[in-house]
């Protein structure tokens, strides 16, 4: 079982993740060509200006008004991306298979970053359950996406600390990671892919076409 989930399934997950993402982006761009406004309105300068104001925390008025959400959201997303990519245990596997490696985060810090992701998930869950606006636009899919995101980190945490049933948890952990990768291009987790584009377009329309700003 372990050989299967850590071998062929990893390949499959990455192929679907990368292929699916490329297809989604290609489909979006070709659909945008059908509209007469999207491409003529794009401007590199204003796209970058918008991104700079929205990927740096507190660099726009709205984030300044919502400090707690901003801090949690940034910490969550940064840890979500960096932890799996720079985790020593992941890099060891990569080194064994392909003999390539890169900088790793010390395990102690990675452990805390995992906790940050889990806390972030709890925070988002809490908002979904309590904020009336969010509640009103929440359905099963939103909880499912949250679960898909949280599971690799929860299982990763348990596996690292070898709290119980190490082998089983490890297999679940790998599977959860694979599910998340596969889900990214085909669910609303795709905001990971599209965020840059929607931001760039709105920034371009506001800046390049409408001579204003979007932050």
């Amino acid at each position: 079982m372990y050989e299967f989930v850590s071998g062929p399934l990893v390949w499959l997950a990455f192929i679907i993740f990368i292929g699916g993402s490329l297809y989604r982006i290609y489909k979006m761009l070709s659909d945008c060509k059908k509209e007469n406004v999207v491409f003529p309105h794009m401007s590199l300068k204003h796209s970058l200006a918008s991104l700079v104001h929205w990927v740096i925390p507190f660099n726009n008025q709205y984030m300044q008004k919502r400090p707690i959400f901003t801090i949690v959201s940034f910490a969550f997303h940064i840890c979500l991306i960096l932890t799996p990519v720079f985790l020593l245990a992941h890099l060891v596997l990569l080194d064994e298979s392909w003999n390539i490696s890169w900088f790793n985060i010390p395990d102690g810090i990675a452990d805390w970053m995992t906790i940050v992701v889990i806390i972030g998930c709890i925070f988002f869950l809490y908002r979904r359950l309590t904020d009336p606006v969010v509640q009103n636009v929440t359905d099963g899919s939103d909880y499912l996406l949250l679960a898909i995101t949280a599971l690799p980190f929860i299982t990763g945490f348990i596996a690292y600390h070898q709290l119980f049933a190490y082998k089983t948890i490890l297999i679940i952990h790998i599977l959860a990671g694979e599910i998340m990768l596969i889900a990214i291009p085909f669910t609303r987790l795709s905001h990971m892919l599209f965020f840059v584009f929607t931001r760039a377009y709105f920034g371009s329309e506001q800046g390049h076409v409408k001579n204003s700003k979007d932050w």
Partner: peptide, 18 residues
């Protein structure tokens, strides 16, 4: 009359309510 924008907007919205 619509294209990539509408689809991308609807499928990118993470229902955060901000």
């Amino acid at each position: 009359e619509t294209g990539g924008r509408l689809w991308t907007y609807v499928n990118t919205c993470i229902h955060c309510g901000l």
